[in-house]
Design a protein around this nucleic acid. Sequence first.
DNA 1: TTGAAAGCGATACCAA
DNA 2: TTGGTATCGCTTTCAA
Lengths: 345, 345
Amino acid sequence: MSKKRRKSNKVSLDEVAQAAGVSKMTASRVLRESGGYSEKTRVKVMQQVDQLGYLPNRLATVFAGDQRSTFIGVSIPDLGNEVFSQVLEGIDRKLGTFGYQSVLGLTRHTPQEEESWIRTVLSWQPAGLILTGRYHSPRASDMLRNAGIPIVEIWDLNSSPLDMSVGINHFDSGFDMGRYLIGCGYRKIGYVGTHHDAASAATARLDGFCKAVEGGGGAVIRQLRLNDTAAYYPGYYGTEQLLASAAEIECIFYQNDAMAFGGLQYCATRGLDVPGDIGIAGWGDLPVASVLSKRLTSVHVSHHKLGQVAAEMMLARLSDEPAQSVKDIGFRLIPGRTVSNTPRS
Amino acid sequence: MSKKRRKSNKVSLDEVAQAAGVSKMTASRVLRESGGYSEKTRVKVMQQVDQLGYLPNRLATVFAGDQRSTFIGVSIPDLGNEVFSQVLEGIDRKLGTFGYQSVLGLTRHTPQEEESWIRTVLSWQPAGLILTGRYHSPRASDMLRNAGIPIVEIWDLNSSPLDMSVGINHFDSGFDMGRYLIGCGYRKIGYVGTHHDAASAATARLDGFCKAVEGGGGAVIRQLRLNDTAAYYPGYYGTEQLLASAAEIECIFYQNDAMAFGGLQYCATRGLDVPGDIGIAGWGDLPVASVLSKRLTSVHVSHHKLGQVAAEMMLARLSDEPAQSVKDIGFRLIPGRTVSNTPRS
DNA sequence: TTGAAAGCGATACCAA
DNA sequence: TTGGTATCGCTTTCAA
């Protein structure tokens, strides 16, 4: 009240202590249940805490002590893509259970936005960082190296990570799908995705896919990369565009299941039989695939688990337990019924 | 190096200042571009900033000054439900643009988890809070009132909010759908949703729905509330259960479009014609509906916009602009083609 | 078991 | 244009 620079009307530990007739150190010890104090003192202090509605200021705590905050910065490209909202859910549920909070950053896949977000988040002294993707701008990499906190790079498995990495090998997952489609007899294949740059996991998938297809005597005769999100409707109109420009395509591989589902709907609308007239393959095994009458050919990845494992590695590190630094959570090709394994040609 | 309680190897403002041969106040002014300093000084300081890789400690800034942090606590029930991941995306994109960060809390719709999350987040001195839902535990309400920061309650429009509110009137949206289905001639109606408690917006929707149906001479003859998430597959098997227990149902209203889509797939699998044999109505107008060959009967709500508006109200308040305290973003019934407007009975 | 004093990294305020 | 000093709320350290 009397002080000049009182920043708010919040109750401070000192006020609680005075009200309880003890020093603030004693009150501090009671609240942290550390060091020695008598039961009588504890009761007196806790009474005042309740009475005054005292809430500790953790900023001051972290600032004063050698402690770290309980923030974990989490960067995610976007939440429109169900893949990433599942990863985030997995991360935050696990972190929350252990008293940590996610500080979100939607970085749109761009290194510049990531860099600026990293700078800001680091200034809040986070306990650790979980980043999607393995590519970071040079300045971001510098900051990360100097931060001296645990860092988990997720999604695209990084065999020589800054610190730790969890994910899958996207190249291999694309390769396996390519090989599978070749094995089914397809030769003229198309791809529908969004505009992903060279550093993206989707690009690695596509590279692996093309390699397998070409190695097997087929060809990815057209790759459509839309300037849109990897969602249902772009899959729908992307399929339309693709088939309009290359009618001979026998099978289409999509960036993810949402787009593949859009493609399925386009085919249904046009009366194209799947897989009779055209094969459809997705990626990610998203929930929408769980209710289709024909199982969607796809690649299963446990997104929720990926997030959980990332959080677990972070937590292990924070409590100085021995932690693996690289973890491949794997994938599984799902044959499904939207491609035909009886070659037509 | 020489100091005793050096908490880390981080570079402090004082070190930068010393290296540049000025006082830390001068360095502080340069970095904040406030007050007066000469160009020569600016250059000297900035050089050292680059050289030493100085990152400000915002904890200290907030702690020292009258400033607030740039954290906004955001509580969301879960991200598996696309509705909420869209809301969150809308919030974080807007906040991020203005230099604020979302501190996430997945509170599972339970007041207890919300309370514990609120306590933690408040201890970090956030600039504001965005909370999903209008019901809070008594202790949470106390803390919120005493926090003295802007609070936006979203989702379920609250005409007498703690502070501000954005959302829609869920009761009305359910009512409109009920009236619409009655107008189409349906009388024996079912509901499939998840287990939502009395405080949930989904309950308000269902209440409004029932009122309209009963007022129109129909009956909601069975309400199925699954102990599961409001997702595709529960919609699928929920439909199966519902029809097994009440075959006379002519039309089903679902908690959201994801569940309705699961219902559609169940009908397709069983050879039931929609809307010939049974009507299907969803809620939320989720992206999946955008690619169905038959437009799903639903209620459109702009989830992304809801998040944006919530963030805008928060930002306005934080910059002391006049801000509306209650905003209804509205909804729109989408007739669609999964219910029939030619009554059969 | 308790308390007094120093200090964490920055900013506000006032003086030079 | 600059710098010294007090201060934010709490914990650490040391002494009683």
